[in-house]
Design a protein around this nucleic acid. Structure first.
Length: 416
RNA sequence: CGGGGUGUGGCGCAGUUGGCUAGCGCGUGCGGUUUGGGACCGCAAGGUCGAAGGUUCGAGUCCUUUCACCCCGACCA
């Protein structure tokens, strides 16, 4: 994409009321637009990052046998009453409204009930199981207070996966597979080293659920981590009894702030029984389906990535999620320079390497500052110097040093 | 929801004890000089001061109500 065609602009200042680093940088660089407290729009650059993250998550979910669908945002009241979660006293994040005829509806803050109810139409025999479905949905939650930029909004994108299994054994196998898939997701987006499987409250259904916590000062959770075992335990279940149970040595645990980027739950059969989701097993008896639910906060993940990698010059995107792989800066507009830049632009584009081409002919300092702020991993500069020498100036976003290289050397940087 | 704070051109801010045509920087447009880390000069456009009501000869400044936003806390199956 050519920067002259990008409608967003970078800014030197940030809105004074935005204190979260992730939102400040993303707004400054033109990735997001704040609509209201905790509600952000994703602009072209931001959307590209979001889609990159979604692609990674989607690949991993599909590899698990997940089937993608998309549920509705408007939800029926009666469904939530069946599981006693319609009452504001029980669930305090509801947004609710009414049809013209007075029928009360809720805006989806979660979709377990809805999906499970729907699956009753398709699950009746053991032959229909297992079934695993997932979606990317915009969740709406009436948080008392939103904060931390896009890490805790009232409207956010979540990937939620639901598993329907015949037995605890079958469920557990899938649950473990999801755990591995999640770890791959976090590895692929660049947070593998600092993301820990964390024991957390299992709610009403099991003793523990598992969270995926990324170490981050901007996170809201306190966890105790055992680096050697790559495990952690959430403050909410941190007791001597639990430590003993998990075989964790209190002395080796490190207390840190972390952001919950994923959470997986086993529901057993309780919810199926509430909602009436049964299947007929091989022996002819009816049994409740075993349920699991698995979430990844996609937009939050984007915020955590920004928080973690950013430096004093701006955002630093890991290659896998960067809006563009290459940021091409063209200094000057002599015929030779323009020609060299345009040519590289088409070569890279043809090679399927996403590139943001700064063809605005502004002062170099300004273009460099924008390149740093936007944070693409690779920067290439073309100027009279390079045009004369038939070389390219290359610099990684994470490095201070630029080097001159030939076209073949340069292309080697982007070899698949 | 409790406590604290803030609303003035697109963004960041200033605006004395109420007083003249509401300023400044950034950004934007035009002209010119510039061109390897956010250049400079000149000209110009752009706000009725969150909203409603009130006090006053006179309100961005005072009063009432209200809306929004931010921070801390509580909350977050």
């Amino acid at each position: 994409m050519k920067m002259s065609e990008l409608f967003t602009k970078t800014s030197k200042t940030v809105p004074a009321d935005e204190t979260a680093k992730n939102a400040q940088l993303l707004i400054k660089a033109g990735f997001i637009h704040k609509e209201m407290a905790g509600v952000y729009a994703y602009l072209p650059l931001g959307l590209r990052v979001l889609e990159n993250i979604k692609t990674i998550v989607r690949e991993e979910m599909n590899a698990l046998g997940g089937q993608e669908l998309i549920m509705t945002s408007l939800q029926r009241r009666e469904l939530w009453e069946k599981t006693d979660r319609w009452d504001d006293a029980k669930v305090d994040v509801w947004f609710k409204s009414k049809f013209k005829n007075g029928t009360e509806v809720g805006f989806g803050w979660s979709h377990e009930e809805q999906i499970t109810e729907m699956m009753k139409n398709y699950i009746s025999s053991y032959r229909d199981l297992p079934a695993n479905v997932y979606q990317f949905q915009t969740k709406l939650r009436n948080e008392l207070r939103s904060k931390s930029g896009i890490m805790r909004g009232r409207e956010f994108v979540m990937k939620d996966l639901y598993s329907y299994s015949r037995s605890d054994t079958e469920h557990q196998k899938f649950y473990d597979a999801v755990t591995q898939a999640y770890l791959r997701v976090f590895e692929r987006v660049g947070l593998g080293d600092i993301t820990y499987v964390t024991f957390a409250s299992g709610g009403a259904f099991t003793q523990f659920s598992h969270e995926f916590q990324t170490v981050s000062e901007a996170g809201e959770d306190t966890i105790y981590l055992d680096r050697s075992r790559k495990l952690a335990i959430n403050d909410e279940v941190y007791t001597d009894e639990v430590l003993r149970q998990l075989g964790l040595d209190k002395g080796k645990l490190e207390k840190v702030q972390a952001a919950e980027v994923g959470n997986i739950f086993s529901f057993g059969t309780a919810k199926s029984e509430q909602l009436g989701l049964y299947f007929t097993d091989e022996d002819g008896t009816d049994k409740p389906v075993v349920l699991g639910s698995y979430g990844i906060g996609v937009t939050r993940l984007m915020g955590v990535i920004v928080e973690h990698f950013a430096d004093d010059k701006g955002i630093v995107w890991p290659e896998a999620v960067a809006p563009f792989k290459v940021h091409l800066v063209r200094i000057g507009d002599s015929e030779k320079v323009v020609k060299q830049a345009e040519q590289l632009y088409s070569v890279l584009t043809a090679a399927g390497i996403s590139i943001l081409y700064d063809n605005r002919n502004m002062r170099p300092g300004e273009m460099f500052a924008d390149a740093d702020l936007i944070g693409s991993p690779h920067r290439i500069v073309i100027s009279d110097k390079t045009a004369a020498a038939k070389t390219y100036e290359y610099k990684a976003r994470t490095s201070d040093k630029a080097t001159q290289m030939s076209e073949s050397e340069l292309m080697g940087r982007f070899a698949k």
